[in-house]
Simulated assay, not measured.
Amino acid sequence: MDNTSIIEVEVTKEDGQLTFANNVLKAYEGFATVTVVGTEGEMGKLKLRVTPGTKPEVLKIVRDLEEKLDLKIIKIEE
């Protein structure tokens, strides 16, 4: 994917939150490519590759998940 941005998020593995966040983001098919990139200790990391056209919607979804889960954005690359 040319011209993609990367959004990295960290989410707790407790109570299946990592799995839930991964499944929610993958359910929006075509919005982002989601990869689990690490699961150190109690936290997991997801890497989302997004296009300029889908980035605003993906950020909206992630920010909504921040309010519901123990999840935070750790990096947004342009």
Rank of each mutant, 00 (worst) to 15 (best):
Met1Tyr: 08
Met1Ser: 13
Asp2Phe: 10
Asp2Ser: 14
Asp2Thr: 13
Asp2Met: 10
Asn3Glu: 08
Thr4Cys: 07
Thr4Arg: 11
Ser5Gln: 09
Ser5Arg: 11
Ile6Val: 15
Ile7Gly: 03
Ile7Leu: 02
Ile7Ala: 01
Glu8Ser: 08
Val9Glu: 00
Val11Gln: 03
Thr12Ala: 08
Lys13Gln: 14
Lys13Val: 11
Lys13Pro: 04
Glu14Pro: 02
Glu14Ser: 12
Asp15Trp: 00
Asp15Glu: 14
Asp15Gln: 05
Gly16Ala: 05
Gly16Gln: 05
Gln17Lys: 03
Gln17Met: 11
Gln17Trp: 06
Thr19Phe: 10
Phe20Ala: 11
Phe20Leu: 13
Asn23Trp: 06
Asn23Met: 12
Asn23Asp: 13
Asn23Ile: 00
Val24Asp: 07
Val24Phe: 03
Leu25Trp: 07
Leu25Ile: 02
Lys26Trp: 08
Lys26Ile: 09
Tyr28Glu: 13
Tyr28Gly: 06
Tyr28Pro: 01
Glu29Ala: 11
Gly30Asn: 06
Gly30Lys: 03
Gly30Met: 06
Gly30Thr: 04
Phe31Thr: 09
Ala32Gln: 03
Ala32Pro: 03
Val34Ser: 06
Val34Gln: 05
Val34Leu: 04
Val34Pro: 04
Thr35Lys: 14
Thr35Ser: 12
Val36Lys: 05
Val36Ala: 04
Val36Pro: 00
Gly38Ile: 02
Gly38Thr: 05
Thr39Ala: 14
Gly41His: 08
Gly41Ile: 00
Met43Leu: 12
Met43Asn: 13
Gly44Ser: 01
Gly44Thr: 01
Gly44Pro: 04
Lys45Asn: 05
Leu46Ser: 02
Leu46Phe: 03
Lys47Leu: 12
Lys47Asn: 12
Leu48Ile: 07
Arg49Asp: 12
Arg49Cys: 07
Val50His: 02
Val50Ile: 07
Thr51Tyr: 03
Pro52Met: 00
Pro52Lys: 12
Thr54Asn: 06
Thr54Pro: 02
Lys55Phe: 10
Lys55Cys: 06
Pro56Cys: 10
Glu57Thr: 15
Val58Asp: 02
Val58Ala: 05
Leu59Tyr: 02
Lys60His: 10
Lys60Thr: 11
Lys60Ala: 10
Val62Tyr: 03
Arg63Ala: 07
Arg63Tyr: 09
Arg63Asp: 08
Asp64Arg: 15
Leu65Val: 10
Glu66Trp: 07
Glu66Leu: 04
Glu66Ser: 04
Glu67Tyr: 08
Lys68Met: 12
Leu69Asn: 04
Asp70Cys: 03
Leu71Ser: 01
Leu71Ile: 05
Lys72Arg: 15
Lys72Ser: 13
Ile73Asn: 01
Ile74Phe: 06
Ile76Thr: 11
Ile76Phe: 00
Ile76Arg: 06
Glu77Ser: 08
